[in-house]
Design a protein around this nucleic acid. Structure first.
Lengths: 336, 336
DNA sequence: TTGAAAGCGCTAACAT
DNA sequence: ATGTTAGCGCTTTCAA
């Protein structure tokens, strides 16, 4: 348990009677160097257990080769998948991942962004919870690219983003519901100041209007994407004098909460109230009922976001903003 | 979109007619400095949007104030929760998180460890997939602490670790099963070269032996913690001439796979075969049947691991190894 | 109380 | 083909 000093380039150089720069070149493969010395150096590196100090390299290169990822909740399987996707392409391209959870807290998000800045990340993948203009400007003025996922700021075209066609997803989901014969449909929306929440709400509205189905205010509640609000709001909706026959719920957690409430009230899905949702992927395949759901392709969002980011980082010329909008993936269920 | 040069300490110093060291002291609060200049500096920092370069600081301080976390699969809700726990403590104490997924691949794990080394992490939280002795030694010789979670290496007492009492968990689970009247019990184990897999198997054995229940080789199969192996092995077990009445399955994914197989074979849980498992937490609470399960306290594992790590990092004197063994948390279900 | 200067480990321009 | 040297942005002795 000797607290051994780490081997530095200088140590290797000394041992081999070479200069640091020669050793450095031997490692990087850049610059002219004779095959003999190169082999000699590489051998010495192996047996000395040399580990390059990437902090020093980052400082010198003015590039830490790392990507920051800020999500609201890593425990949400959607974000976990996004991260997994982003991580896999990052590794491939030689970038490491700095991770932060914002816990849906705008203050934590700001802190995390500040941290990323200080750590000199090469770029950021951000699932933002709200308006964080000043910090975003700071990234921009330092020319550190951000790719927005899930929620996108306005106007979208002045940022990079990877998102899902939420309007369409909600529109389709609602239309299917109507085609199944439901007309009295309520909704538990997400926060309407977040693009995902708002777009899903608007898609719902469009479909309802187009099919001449009634939009009743007491059937529509704005939640916060947390399970708790799903529980509370579903109860409120079901306790109206004349509750709807179906409810669309804007994300997975609120749906789980809502389902809990429905069970507790002794009602059944879909007989008493039908449910349709977003992003309720079920790794267990034990759910009952299975929830009809429009899902964002999470892993793909992660890989695409990382690709767009790295692409921009390695581009020779300024690139136009990329606004990738992926198709939602529908999975049917017996919740309706 | 001016690619503005970041403000450095030197720029601030110039602007204020001070030296860099004075500005640095003003920021850090260390060292004598007059209140006036201090205020002056702080004001300038605010309005100039100065962002300290942490890479430079890390190099100078020989401490990156970051913690590496390597897990096998961030998509597994167990690990996601571990990370969440670790992250929250880390943030509090001023450490950032470098994340890597090993995808249950020992080669990726080794690569990730190498990366962490190069990035000069202050410490590592490692959910190891297998024997990775040399790399572990490297951390040790560089005096970079590792806290093992989930799987622990042998001999456990020469490492820091946070784990769950897997033997006990399996023993209790098996005993309960027996007390419910089951005697013909099979098991789909995890990899027996991983401590979690092995200990759960041994706990099962102990309980079976102690209660004089039969251990039949054809009812016991070694899986790899993936869903696929749960599917395959459950089929194999059920296709034996005389299948068991209950099967204990060593983790969540294999259980989901096994349940799928059981359904596909047109059998029912628990009437045809009862199930008991580990770590099957169900965020949806929609599972049917709900799975009786012994769960690791995931978030707590994460927080404790981070605490132990940071504690060691900030200790003045060498600390003895910490081997925290947490109690499993039982959640009943109607799978038995 | 403040400033000058060294140096963390590395890369790269320049010199040999 | 190899060596010398400057310098990335910061902290911290040491000197003024």
């Amino acid at each position: 348990m000797n607290k051994q000093k780490p081997v530095r380039l200088r140590d290797l150089a000394f041992e081999l009677n070479l200069s640091v720069s020669t050793v450095s070149r031997a490692m990087s493969g850049k610059g002219r160097i004779s095959d003999k010395t190169r082999a000699r150096v590489l051998k010495a590196i192996k047996k000395s257990n040399y580990t390059p100090n990437d902090v020093a390299r980052s400082l010198r290169m003015q590039n830490a080769m790392s990507i920051g990822i800020i999500v609201t909740d890593i425990t949400n399987s959607f974000f976990a998948s996004v991260i997994k996707g982003a991580q896999s392409v990052s590794r491939e391209k030689g970038y490491s991942i700095l991770l932060s959870n914002s816990d849906e807290n705008i203050l934590y998000e700001a802190e995390a962004m500040q941290l990323m800045l200080e750590k000199q990340v090469s770029g950021l993948i951000l699932a933002s919870v709200g308006n964080n203009g000043p910090r975003i400007d700071q990234f921009r003025s330092l020319n550190i690219p951000i790719v927005f996922i899930d929620n996108t700021p306005e106007p979208i075209t002045s940022f990079d983003s990877v998102s899902t066609d939420n309007h369409k997803a909600a529109y389709c989901l609602t239309t299917r519901l109507i085609e199944k014969g439901y007309r009295e449909i309520g909704m538990i929306t997400g926060p309407l100041n977040q693009s995902s929440g708002r777009q899903r709400y608007e898609g719902f509205q469009s479909a309802m209007n187009e099919h001449g189905a009634p939009l009743r205010a007491e059937w529509i509640r704005e939640g916060d994407f947390q399970m708790e609000s799903g529980m509370v709001l579903m109860r409120r909706i079901l306790e109206t004098a004349r509750p709807p026959r179906a409810v669309i719920i804007s994300n997975n957690y609120m749906t789980y909460g809502a389902a809990k409430t429905i069970k507790r009230m002794g009602k059944s899905i879909p007989d008493d109230v039908a449910l349709a949702s977003f992003d309720t992927d079920d790794p267990t395949s034990l759910s009952s009922p299975t929830i009809a759901s429009m899902n964002q392709p999470a892993v793909e969002i992660g890989t695409k976001a990382a690709e767009i980011l790295i692409n921009r980082l390695t581009a020779k010329q300024p690139l136009p903003h990329a606004n990738l909008v992926l198709e939602p993936v529908f999975t049917d269920g017996d919740s309706w």
